[in-house]
Amino acid sequence: MTKPVAQQETYSASNLPIEKYNELDDYIATLDDKKGSLIHVLHKAQDIFGFLPKEVQLYVARKLDLPGAKVFGVASFYSYFTSNPVGRHKISVCMGTACFVRGAEKIFEELKSKLDVEAGGTTEDNQFTLKDVRCIGACGLAPIVMIDDKVFGRVKLEELDNILDEFREED
């Protein structure tokens, strides 16, 4: 059973490059209403760092003169934000009603098995992060798998290897 977000451990990344913090500082310096810009700052921080580890959340809190709990609350409330590292490619499997009825759960389970990850997990090679989402908004194409910004509709189990191969990268 998955713990509620507030009870999940936040990823720690103590050795993040100072250049990334400097880039975030430069962005924050351009803002007129720093306290009112928390979501914008978190978006920028996630763009820069790739995710929002607790060190970055606390840094943002100090820079905006806000309680750390407020920053964590916002970062954990919005599904766009992630406090854990993500893979180069984000796989979203729609679990909306139309997709679910047409087999999305089997597709999701097969992807978990093929990638050897749990929901929300990232593969060991950092290639893929797998998430289930409530609705992608293209019910006529159910079931849907989306990788990054590319939508695959009417997905069948036997197509998954070919779909993944399109995004696999050699290191």
Rank of each mutant, 00 (worst) to 15 (best):
H43F: 12
V71Q: 04
E166S: 03
V41L: 07
D132I: 06
T129M: 00
D116T: 06
N15T: 13
K112W: 12
S14M: 10
A61R: 15
D132F: 00
V145C: 11
E124G: 05
G140S: 04
L164N: 09
T122M: 06
K20C: 09
E118R: 15
G121V: 03
A104F: 02
L24Y: 03
F49A: 09
Y27C: 05
T129L: 04
Q57A: 00
E19H: 13
V71A: 11
D32T: 15
T2R: 14
N126T: 07
E110T: 04
P17H: 01
G36N: 12
I136N: 08
K150N: 02
A69H: 05
S92M: 07
G96L: 06
V151I: 15
A69M: 02
R154M: 12
V155I: 00
A98D: 02
D47S: 04
N162R: 00
M95S: 02
S83E: 04
D65A: 07
V60Y: 07
G96A: 13
S79M: 09
L64Q: 12
D33E: 14
T129Y: 03
E55W: 10
R62D: 01
G36F: 13
S76R: 14
L24H: 05
E23S: 12
Y80L: 06
R102K: 10
F167S: 03
G87I: 07
K70Y: 07
F128M: 09
K63D: 11
D116I: 00
K34W: 15
D116V: 01
C99M: 08
V74W: 05
E169A: 01
P67Y: 14
Q57Y: 07
F51A: 11
L38C: 12
M1Y: 11
D32C: 14
D32Y: 15
E9V: 10
L130C: 12
G121D: 05
V117A: 07
V41N: 01
A45R: 12
R62M: 02
